[in-house]
Design a protein around this nucleic acid. Structure first.
Length: 483
RNA sequence: CGGAGAGUAGCGCAGCUGGUUAGCGCGCAGCGUUCGGGACGCUGAGGUCGCCGGUUCGAAUCCGGCCUCUCCGACCA
């Protein structure tokens, strides 16, 4: 990373990503190994995601609650697959108050167990169902290879946990949440994700079925950006989550869990960013409009700043997130680059020249050079700004959708799959077995992303076989390089 | 945890076949000139040379161990 600009994507995509995170001031490395410090600008972006999700969760009847960070070791061990899946990643507290603990405490890698314990106490009757709980929390997983926002040992997320009377209701909930995730991705983050079912190998430890949203990043790699799990009665049985039915019969509940993490910030960076830095979707951008005040001397400064503050108040009153850059001692050109790095969707240049004409100069982050610039009369500015923000939001989604659709290709053999995943996603008729999946990964470095829901009307379609091994196909699956 | 690379000022780096007081560029502070696409001059602040140990009259420099970061694998939101 040089002092100005970032490593070009074409030169080294991974470096580009790191450069952008650091130079756009989203986060930095922490002194704690594998951990990151989320800086205010990055955290504000996360808050935007939180708001978008929270609103939808509450609209669908979920309530927020909070459970302990520390979980008794014995809890983790109650669900067999769950232990097996998470044991290697656990951070364990063995001492407290200067003494060795009777029972080690696990720092939660996820909270199915401790929440399941509470659910067992909270639920007695069918009238207590469905129970729809979400928590905003940090979790710890001892990852081997951390990457800013994409995989850190501690990360922030929301984890929803619900209990239902019937399997059908639990599945409905799992899908409802998957739809919410896809909606937030597309309509807030401007990332057109693929909704699909995870293979048996990729599913959550302890789930009956896992579903995910998969986004395509700028380098055509896939990023799992949210997951929704149908847990069947696995955790209900492990934690005795039972209810009395109308018929006075004691039944196990059906539960779900689902999560979106700060990884979504990484998705936004990689789905939209370019060689000038971040490009933020207006709906999530902490700053939607930055006003760069341009002046040469004291008298110009006075008139320009007065006008700038008036414009700021006007936009703020209309609900636009606006920031004034009146820093002195740096040239406008420097500031332009600076705000472009930070991905602010709209820049407004206001100087003596504009004021004389009764206009301001709007510049769009998503359109390069002159194409994205237009003088706009101060009268009637607000509706134009609102329209441009909406256009940028739509434009980013449109561009990301084109990128995705142009890079989805059907593969009829392992060789074809290998060629496709070098620069795209391969759709393949697939058996879904561990052996076949491992073989594909070995040959192509691509992993099974999901069986897309919209392309799999039925599972195990008659007569269809796996394009790789010839066994009966479970359905059509996407394979791609992934983070 | 396997393979590769790297840790010297906030960032990017030089110095490394041992030898005064550890440099350069950017950034930072002050002053002045600038200001519509990454300005310039002067002055200045800023360092346990990743950590521990060893060799030596003397270690950023040589040796050993450890830690951390980046990239590629295995693992994952």
């Amino acid at each position: 990373m040089n002092s100005q600009g970032v490593t070009p994507q074409s030169e080294d995509y991974a470096r580009w990503y790191n450069d952008v995170v650091l130079k756009a001031d989203l986060a930095e490395y922490a002194p704690t190994p594998g951990c990151m410090i989320i800086k205010p600008y990055g955290y504000e972006l996360w808050e935007g995601i939180q708001d978008a999700l929270n609103r939808r969760f509450k609209e669908t009847g979920h309530r927020n609650a909070y459970f302990p960070l520390l979980i008794p070791m014995s809890f983790i061990q109650k669900e067999a697959d769950h232990v097996e899946g998470f044991a290697p990643q656990l951070a364990v507290v063995t001492h407290g108050g200067g003494k060795e603990l009777e029972e080690p405490l696990v720092i939660r890698p996820t909270s199915e167990t401790i929440i399941g314990h509470s659910f067992a106490q909270w639920i007695h009757s069918y009238q207590d169902l469905p129970l729809l709980i979400n928590q905003w929390a940090n979790v710890v997983r001892w990852e081997m290879r951390p990457r800013l926002f994409l995989r850190t040992r501690e990360f922030l997320w929301q984890e929803g946990h619900t209990a239902h009377a019937t399997e059908a209701e639990a599945i409905e909930e799992t899908m409802r949440i998957l739809d919410i995730y896809a909606d937030v991705a597309a309509n807030e983050a401007a990332i057109p994700v693929v909704k699909g079912r995870k293979s048996n190998q990729e599913k959550f430890a302890g789930a009956e079925a896992s579903y995910s949203i998969e986004g395509m990043m700028g380098n055509k790699w896939a990023l799992q950006s949210g997951t929704s799990h149908h847990l069947g009665q696995n955790f209900a049985k492990a934690f005795e989550i039972k209810y009395l039915s109308k018929e006075n019969k004691l039944e196990y509940c059906w539960t779900t869990s689902w999560g979106v993490s700060t990884r979504m910030v990484g998705a936004i960076i990689m789905a939209h960013g370019d060689d000038k830095g971040l490009r933020l979707p207006p709906r999530l951008a902490p700053i939607q409009v930055v006003i760069v005040a341009i002046f040469k001397n004291e008298s110009e400064k006075e008139t320009v700043l007065a006008a700038v503050h008036r414009l700021r108040d006007l936009l703020a009153a209309a609900g636009v997130r606006v920031h004034v850059d009146a820093r002195e001692g740096m040239t406008p050109g420097f500031k332009f680059n600076d705000w472009e790095m930070r991905g602010v969707p709209l820049r407004m240049e206001v100087g003596p020249r504009d004021l004389a004409q009764g206009t301001v100069l709007l510049s769009r982050r998503d359109l390069p050079g002159k194409e994205g610039k237009e003088p706009v009369p101060v009268d009637g500015l607000v509706p134009v700004v609102e329209r441009r923000l909406a256009e940028i939001q739509a434009g980013l989604l449109e561009r990301a959708t084109q990128l995705r659709d142009a890079n989805l290709h059907e593969a009829r053999s392992l060789a074809e799959l290998g060629e496709i995943v070098a620069d795209g996603w391969a759709l393949v008729s697939h058996c879904g077995t561990a052996e076949c999946e491992a073989k594909i990964q070995e040959e192509s470095k691509a992993s099974s992303r999901c069986f897309p829901l919209d392309l799999n009307e039925e599972w195990y379609p008659k007569g269809k076989t796996c394009a790789i091994c010839g066994k009966p196909a479970q359905g059509l699956a996407y394979f791609a390089r992934a983070y």
